[in-house]
Structures are given as structure tokens and as C-alpha cells.
Amino acid sequence: MPPAPRPLPAPRAPPTIAAADLTPSLFARHRGRRPLLIRGLLNRSDLATWSTTLSTQLLPDATTVDAMVAKDNRTFVANPLFTDTVEISAETMRAEAQRPATDDKEEGTRYYHRQVVPTPLLPTLHVDDILAPNCFAYPDEDKAKPELIKAWISSPGCITPLHYDRCHGFLVQITGTKYFFQFDAADAPLLYPSSGASLPTHLSRVPNVALLYGLDATTGTIQPAVADPDTVQWTLNKFPKIKDADPPFGILLEPGDALYTPPGWYHEVVSVSGSVSVTVPWDMSEVEVATMMPMHMAL
């Protein structure tokens, strides 16, 4: 019997800078082309504000929130094929967001909740004073609409499976940690895009990406020995072209980090610990749609 396949080569670290070093010319080299990790976008004061308001503005006591529960207790997509919606207490959701990383096999229902970021918290994200001046190149079109800036609050072990977005976007990590895999848009044909017949068109059909690359769910580090050989073998037998893709960028996001993902880049996101993060999206400009839109987004 041939040996079971090993996990795929380790992910690459994305280009990384400190928030103080972000400039318009630097971001222009990344916009629409490759990721960029910005360390320290949120400072200690910003993070302390979020910590305080978690129980007053986001998840106040004696209230309830709608949360997604995954049919397999791990794969979260806002689609009835993957998740149902339940009403839980804000205290329960807050406790989930503060849980440490746990073994993937540990029992217990996982929850994922999303909501628009309350207006008083928007200045802590530094969209207007850092991101917009450096990252938004088309003043008449680049708009970070407040109603689309959302907080994502999750239990440990929640996975947003491999998918792409049609917009530019930053994910800003607030509390806890998330592991982020990003695949070059040029490798989309190797990632089994959905035809839309049975899955949403922005999803890949490849499951188990974190396992393929040996993500240790308890530490948020790449440890090939932790990958289940049977799962790796089944996935690579069914979706062999992924072996020909360049290794993805992979990074464990810490509180205060902001990660840019270009339009059309497939990515999988794993909540290693309980987590609060925020997405800041904005649309492609007319020039970008006409000149650099990834081919798979036009289908």
C-alpha cells in the first residue's frame, strides 16, 4: 500500500509592514495584486475600547442575538446549505468570543454572529485617518460604507471555507486569533470554482484546506504532523489540481492586525480562539473592473 500523502508545502508569509510605514505608493503596489498585512493598525487604546464595549454596545447583557450554527459544527457560510440561524443570549455569544483555542474534536456547539459596527466604534478602525488616505486611490468611487463594515464574532474552531470576494477588503483583528489562507487569483482554475449549480458561485469545492496545510487548531501554527492522513488523501484524490497551485499566503492574525485581500483571491479563515474581527470592504473601481478583474469573477 502506498504511503498516505503528506500535507501540502507550508504557506508563505504575506508581505508585512507596520501601520506607521503605510503609504499610498506602497499600497498601490499591492492593490488588486497581492495581500498586505499591516501590523498594529489598532493600538492598545483602540483595543481597550473594543474590550470595554463588547459587553455594552456589541453584546449587551439581557439581550439576544441571531447566530449561525453550522450543520457540521465547523463550516460557516451564510447559506441554508451550510448553516441555520438560532437566537442565543448575548452573554453566551460573548463567552464564546472569549474562549481559548480548543482541540477540533472537542464537543460543543460553535456559534458565529455578525453585526454592523456601532458608529462610536468606527474611529477606532482608522479607516478615515490611515486606510482611506493610503489605500483608496479613486476618490469618487472608493467608499467604505459604514453599513457594510461588520463585526464577526465567533467561537473557537469556526471555519469560513475557501471562497473569494468581489470587492477589496481589510479584515481587522480585534480580539482572539484567526488563521488566514490566501490563494493567488491566478490559481483559481486549480481551486475547483463552483458552477453555481449546487454551491454559491463564490465558493471553492475544495474542503479541508486547513488540514491540507497542517494547521494545528490548538496553536494556530502549521504542524504537518497533526493533519489526518485519511482526510488529506481523500481531499487530494478528489481535488488533485490544488497540488499545482502555488503555496498560499498564510498568517495567524493577532489583535490590532489588518490584512488586505484583493478581489478574486480565494481565502479560508479559521477562528483559532474565540474571536472578534471586523471587515472593511470597498468596491473595485470602474478602471479596475475594465482592466484587471480576475477572469473567474467575470463568469
Rank of each mutant, 00 (worst) to 15 (best):
L236T: 06
V226A: 00
F82L: 09
I174Q: 04
F181N: 01
F239S: 04
G250I: 03
P11Y: 08
I222G: 00
I38R: 03
I222L: 11
A19V: 08
R166L: 06
V127A: 00
K178S: 08
T16Q: 11
T64I: 07
G176Q: 06
D216V: 07
V117L: 14
M292N: 11
F180Y: 14
D21I: 07
P3C: 10
A95E: 12
S285E: 09
Y266M: 06
P120E: 10
P15W: 12
H30K: 10
R33K: 15
K145Y: 12
E87N: 12
A298M: 15
D257I: 12
D21V: 06
S25G: 10
E87G: 02
V86G: 04
L212K: 04
R114C: 07
H202V: 11
Y192W: 15
T279Y: 00
T291H: 13
P161M: 11
Y138R: 13
A245H: 04
F27T: 08
E254Y: 14
R94H: 08
R12Q: 14
P11D: 06
G214E: 07
L252M: 11
R34Q: 15
Y164A: 04
A10S: 13
A210T: 04
N237K: 14
T201D: 05
A97I: 06
T177C: 12
L171I: 15
A197N: 14
P189G: 12
Y111A: 00
E254K: 15
N73F: 05
L171G: 08
E141Y: 11
W234K: 14
K145S: 11
V276N: 00
S285T: 15
W50S: 01
D184I: 07
T119M: 09
F239T: 03
